[in-house]
Design a protein around this nucleic acid. Structure first.
Lengths: 211, 211
DNA sequence: TAGATTGTTAATCGATTAACAATC
DNA sequence: TAGATTGTTAATCGATTAACAATC
């Protein structure tokens, strides 16, 4: 139960806190102060305390924060205790890499199905999930009831794919296509990932160094 | 030649401008006003004009912006006219997907080599580049002189890999490992991509909907 | 208790938005 | 010329940082 509207800047920092606290826990830290954590994460202690206090009081004056307890709390805030069922649409290079590379459980999801149109790969397995003909998706959704999807389809297929997924009850999209989805219009949630944009900023920084 | 220090917020928006202008150009737009562009990109016209004016005067009063000229200019600002030679370290699932999926030329890079330690995949080709034994990297660097690298190695190998790459003259890193590289310390540039963090924010938004 | 560090309010800084004169 | 839209300054808003009383 969050106090007020949480700003996007704070939300974007939460997963990073969660990761760093995981590292600390792994390295045997029991407690940590905002000052120490700030140093490790290249932030300010003030910011860290402000961020945490959006959600409650997790520390103890004179002591600091209990690492594993704080991590647990942030995990709950992020919804990592419930595993949202997710499907992958498009098992090309990128889709396959994501499905096999990513630990869905640790970020709040459970991959329950993989779909493609390409007959040549249908039936093959990625991890322990077989690639299924996308024509069987409607039936699949009736029983498995996934609510989120990874979009790894060609740009030309995005519009139709999204429309049919929305009709099948999918509400959240992790979108790797070059077409941006807008969360506002429908009651859908979209996280648009533009790997190209990320690399482009690297180009900027490399080249702007030369004044 | 940028006027002053450009804020990070602006830099992060530049690739998106570039993409949208590309779409507009493809769709036959000759000119566009900041108001129109703002609507398409869900920004404000003010912000767009402010952003562009960090770098110069690209528009014309009473007319708007010439789409292809503006795009060309932003491309130059982003350094997309020079193709920085880049190597991929680690040809697992993700590395392979990036190497084959991404149009490096259009984001200012040229993929010139792919390296791995796994004898089983050395010699195989991704696109038209053969996977090479990483032991041959020092020789390769002497002639090809790459200055940037994609890091797709296991977390355990990151530290040593980065150290040797820096010694070989690599200065810019597109980092997909879970270990963050800090741009400050050395004169290196790092773009840390945390796909898990991106998905985690989706989990937050799905779950925080339920108040 | 004294020392440390949080939670929280106040001050500052930067980014976004609004307004408008310049000008095509 | 009149209308449109930029470039740019000023106002607002939000996010970050600093300060400090509360308290463990």
């Amino acid at each position: 139960m969050s106090k007020n509207a949480i700003s996007n800047s704070v939300i974007r920092r939460l997963p990073r806190y969660y990761r760093f606290l995981g590292e600390l826990e792994k390295n045997g830290y029991d407690k940590i102060s905002s000052r120490e954590l700030a140093e490790k994460m290249s932030l300010t202690a003030s910011q860290i305390r402000q961020d945490f206090n959006c959600f409650g009081e997790f520390g103890q004056q004179g002591y600091g924060y209990n690492v594993s307890e704080l991590r647990r709390q942030i995990g709950i805030i992020l919804g990592l205790d419930s595993k949202t069922p997710m499907i992958l649409i498009g098992a090309g290079n990128l889709g396959t890499a994501l499905a096999s590379h990513l630990d869905f459980g640790s970020v709040g999801f459970r991959l329950v199905g993989i779909f493609d149109t390409n007959k040549e790969i249908i039936g093959k397995k990625i991890g322990d999930i077989a690639i299924t003909d996308i024509e069987r998706l409607p039936d699949f959704c009736k029983t498995a009831k996934p609510v989120s999807a990874i979009l790894c389809v060609p740009d030309t297929a995005v519009e139709k794919t999204v429309e049919s997924l929305v009709n099948l009850g999918i509400r959240a999209f992790w979108n790797f296509t070059h077409c941006e989805l807008h969360s506002d219009s429908e009651d859908i949630i979209a996280e648009n990932v533009h790997l190209g944009d990320s690399l482009t900023t690297l180009s900027y920084r490399i080249n702007s160094e030369k004044h």
